[in-house]
Design a protein around this nucleic acid. Structure first.
Length: 487
RNA sequence: GGAGGCGUAGCUCAGUCGGUAGAGCAACGGACUUUUAAUCCGUUGGUCGUGGGUUCGAGUCCCACCGCCUUCACCA
């Protein structure tokens, strides 16, 4: 602790003590019937008699003018000026006023009028102290600039960086819209386990944990897929879950170790069903974020904007491959040559692995979208049904927007015999932890009882929120992203 | 993991060629009953990320480490 901090703390602690001496509880208590500041701001300041209002909020600014203090208080709906005059506020109120600091929480009762400079103001006749802030708050003008400081003090970031609160509120709105949409479509929201004995449904390294009483190793889920499909077997024809998944991998502007996935499954559908659904779902969400129903379906992103006007482009994996790489994806010799040209190590790698490495290298960034890329090399898709007339192609699509994979969908593989084989097939060129060749016998057994043919869809909610709120880093759409602990 | 950048007061930031550590806001004292980043007068506040090294002298140069950011790798 530096001396400076001690000075700040001492000053605030001293005021805390003075409040106690005034018989004021510096930690406040119940304060009923205060109105959101946004509502108060909507009232008519010219009304006769003036509106009597009660507000509660945090002091963000103060202008002291002798026997009058002007303080700006803030709540999560807005900010308003409060006039605290020595005569108007009463003897005790004036003593409290002497001991206010920036960052304290107060409640005020008073009338709503404009000052002579036209500022909407609560002229307080009663001041209720609600909570002391013992720490100094960020600069009232400079705000918070240091990224690490913002992340480690997200509670302050919500107060002092308006965009942070705005994104948090939009995220809630986006997820609520998704739920409303799916509920209206007849989907059932379910909850499946987070702790898995086998971390299946995706290719990712899991977090490992341990259950003491059973003395077994458990994994935190890396996907929702396999349990939701078990529910299809159980006759729940349309199910979804919005849940947290955990992947023990790198952190980047597009990756957080825990993130939120939407997965949904529809019996008797296929990947084309899912394409239509995805488009309708996201368009519904975009509409909720637009100012009015007639606004064009466009949202700003980075330097440009994203046009969500349907119908979205639909392009096959093979045609994009041909277009951007210049060879057919089933041309084994051509693919190998192209891979080497791009510096990709080819020895010992499966053809489908090479194809996809090339695709990621040369095509993904260019997919500004929204564009549905469909019909993937089957080797990469062990949970996907193969095309009836082309065994090497899987009925899968991914939705790309701004070069980001946003959604991933299949016609689900419901053939237990093929499923068992693909679980056992270790693709050459993929390290074990990246492989989906993890046998889940219980899941295969479920398929053996008969899973209806189905379409399934996964959407990365965090990335969707990024795209819809013009946010460049996943850490700003997650309130508390993972940080290295302070020592 | 590789490469590059950054780390100075509570917050936001300067700090030139290596020569006594700076500003605004905040805080403290004073004036002020309609201010708007209020103003005015005065004051306090520093392990310059940490540890070494070079030097008469290091915030500044060198090395190592820590943290953050960017980028690459990784993330089917």
């Amino acid at each position: 602790m530096s001396d400076a901090l001690n000075t700040f703390e001492a000053s605030r602690a001293e005021k805390l003590q003075r409040l106690k001496e005034l018989q004021i509880d510096p930690w406040g208590g119940r304060f009923d019937d205060h109105r959101p500041i946004r509502e108060i701001r909507a009232l008519d300041p010219e009304a006769e008699p003036p509106h009597q209002v009660r507000a509660a909020g945090r002091i963000l600014q103060r202008r002291v003018q002798g026997k009058v203090h002007f303080v700006d208080i803030w709540d999560w709906t807005g900010r308003i000026q409060v006039y605290l005059g020595q005569k108007q506020i009463g003897e005790l109120g004036w003593k409290i006023t002497q001991n206010l600091d920036l960052g304290d929480l107060i409640g005020v009762d008073g009338i709503l009028k404009k000052t002579r400079t036209g500022e909407l103001t609560i002229f307080a006749d009663k001041l209720t102290f609600l909570t002391k802030s013992l720490e100094p708050h960020p600069d009232k003008w400079g705000g918070m600039q240091d990224i690490e400081y913002r992340l480690r003090h997200r509670y302050l970031d919500l107060i002092y960086t308006p965009e942070t609160l705005d994104r948090a509120l939009k995220r809630v709105k986006i997820i609520r819209t998704i739920r409303n949409f799916l509920d209206n479509e007849g989907y059932l929201e379910v909850e499946t386990p987070v702790l898995h004995a086998i971390a299946g449904g995706a290719a990712a390294r899991p977090f490992v944990t341990h259950h003491n009483a059973l003395n077994i190793q458990l994994y935190q889920r890396i996907a929702l897929e396999l349990h939701l499909k078990r529910l299809l077997v159980g006759g729940l024809e349309k199910v979804y879950e919005i849940g947290r998944v955990f992947r023990n991998e790198g952190i980047s502007p597009k990756h957080n170790p825990e993130f939120t996935m939407l997965e949904l499954y529809q019996a008797y559908g296929d990947y084309h069903t899912m394409m239509d659904l995805t488009e309708n779902l996201i368009v519904a969400v975009v509409r909720e974020l637009l100012p009015d129903a007639n606004a064009p379906l466009k949202l700003p992103y980075g330097q440009g904007e994203i046009d969500f006007t349907p119908p979205w482009q639909r392009a096959s994996y093979a045609e994009l491959f041909q277009q951007h790489i210049g060879v057919a994806m089933d041309d084994r010799v051509g693919v190998e040559q192209a891979a080497r040209k791009h510096g990709i190590v080819t020895t010992g790698k499966d053809h489908d692995v090479l194809v996809h490495e090339l695709f990621e290298e040369c095509v993904e960034d260019k997919l500004q979208g929204p564009v549905f890329v469909y019909d993937y090399p089957a080797g990469l898709c062990p949970l996907t049904k193969r095309k009836r007339d082309a065994e090497h192609i899987a009925e899968r699509f991914e939705l790309y927007i701004q070069g980001m994979e946003l959604a991933n969908a299949y016609t689900e593989l419901n053939d237990p015999i093929t499923q068992e084989q693909t679980f056992r097939t270790q693709l050459a060129g993929l390290p074990e932890e990246e492989s989906m060749a993890r046998m889940d016998e219980d899941f295969v057994r479920a398929l053996r009882y008969g899973m209806p043919p189905a379409g399934g869809l996964g959407i990365g909610i965090d990335r969707l929120v990024m795209l819809l709120t013009n946010t460049q880093t996943i850490r700003d759409v997650i309130l508390f992203p993972l940080l290295r602990p302070e020592k």
